[in-house]
Design a protein around this nucleic acid. Structure first.
Lengths: 234, 234
DNA sequence: CGTGTACTTGAATTACATCAAATGATGTGG
DNA sequence: CCACATCATTTGATGTAATTCAAGTACACG
């Protein structure tokens, strides 16, 4: 039994000014003079699949900006069960509670290889003192988080297992360029939708048999959006 | 058939400096000089039970601070069904998305008679330009909202109907001083827990028969915390 | 090429939804 | 203040969907 912790690779200190996803992220509104004010260490990190950015209960010392990949936010329950409460994708800020001096509320785990910038709270708070432009972006990220939380509840936590699975596919397709999307392990599907692994498996298998989804490769499916839409509509 | 809209009573322009719940609310960190900068209209309003502070989709022009009572946030689904996604109590800020120029994401409805201050976004944004102290409180409110959203999902959207109802009682007892708490209409219980009205009714009736809860008066119950706790633990 | 993990499937059981109807509260106008 | 209307709650009977327990199969990875 190997309980080796998966670690992130350090990729240096990034130049935020030339960041490809800056327009999506926390620093999008900052200008030249804003950037000159911080030489505090921002780290560019690469997390392999399964690595954790931080863990539930840990004191929050940094906010992470996702530059590539998907991060799942996992809530650990007292009884050992776990529920995935959100996904954060490119441009999202993860661990915002750190700016308020709070502990992290969830485990943040890389679902795919993730590139993320780690911004210490001191950097963020100092910067926030000096520029209101950052505040607006922070609020925008909070807003995004709330919208996601609500969508999760209203779209993925109601209806039959079949409808929920269809909704999950549509949710994932939403940010995909084509009809192909990454999908989850069946136990992750269960943790997202609040159903059992068996029901998740049965439902996905059923959709495969009906040719609503097509298994392209490990964890990737090509999907029929229209038919998925019809399923969620009952 | 009367479709008369329930309206709020206007109670004047409040003096925030002497507000009884200021320590809980958005303006808790503001000082004398901050207060001098705004003479913009903040309204003190009284909403009767069932009145709506704002509606889903409406352009967000104000943030509301709840000074008394409880506000339910209702998500209207395309199929006409509705789901209660959050409750906001004394000290909470409702409609924060307005500060970002967004439309309201839910209906905000007074569950009990509600006292609330209506703060126009212009006031808030102007004030936010001038004082970073307000920012911290705005972020705190966002954080609260996210914590609630997550709690709703992890506590109230999993398990059997019996467990969910028990969790709902515990959730309501959490902010109650004694063992007595306000409870919901059965159709509201259904909208919160994602079950049917009949199942909600059956479950509540069952708990009454088992003396876990005791019907004190219309919509108020005395509860046995320990036994509720045992129910959620299975 | 084997081994463990992920996925699938089956059968029995339970929980919930659904349809339908009766009873209990609450409030309003005569 | 009563009678009636309306809303809220409870309960029953029945069907369906999901869980549970238990095997089995496919698949990726070293």
């Amino acid at each position: 039994m190997k309980t080796e912790t998966i670690t992130a690779a350090w990729r240096g200190h990034p130049d935020c000014r030339t960041c490809g996803v800056r327009h999506l992220a926390l620093f999008s509104d900052l200008n030249e003079s804003d950037f000159r004010t911080f030489h505090l260490p921002i780290e560019d990190l690469a997390f392999p699949k399964g690595a954790s950015l931080f863990s539930q209960g840990e004191p929050g010392r940094a906010v992470f900006t996702v530059r590539a990949g998907v991060v799942k936010m996992v809530h650990q329950r007292a009884d050992g069960a776990q529920r995935i409460v959100r996904l954060h994708r490119t441009g999202a800020a993860v661990g915002l509670e750190a700016t308020l001096g709070a502990s992290y509320q969830h485990d943040a785990v890389a679902l795919q290889p993730v590139l993320a910038c780690k911004i210490p709270v001191e950097t963020l708070n100092r910067l926030a003192m000096e520029t209101p432009r950052l505040h607006r972006q922070l609020m925008r990220q909070w807003h995004e988080t709330v919208i996601q939380a609500d969508a999760w509840l209203t779209a993925l936590a109601v209806g039959t297992a079949r409808q929920r699975v269809a909704q999950l596919f549509l949710y994932l397709l939403d940010t995909a360029p084509g009809p192909v999307c990454h999908f989850f392990r069946r136990d992750e599907v269960a943790a997202i939708l609040g159903i059992t692994t068996e029901t998740a498996s049965r439902t996905v298998a059923e959709l495969k048999r009906e040719d609503v989804i097509f298994h392209v490769s490990a964890r990737w499916f090509r999907c029929d959006r229209d038919r998925l839409q019809k399923i969620v509509e009952n």
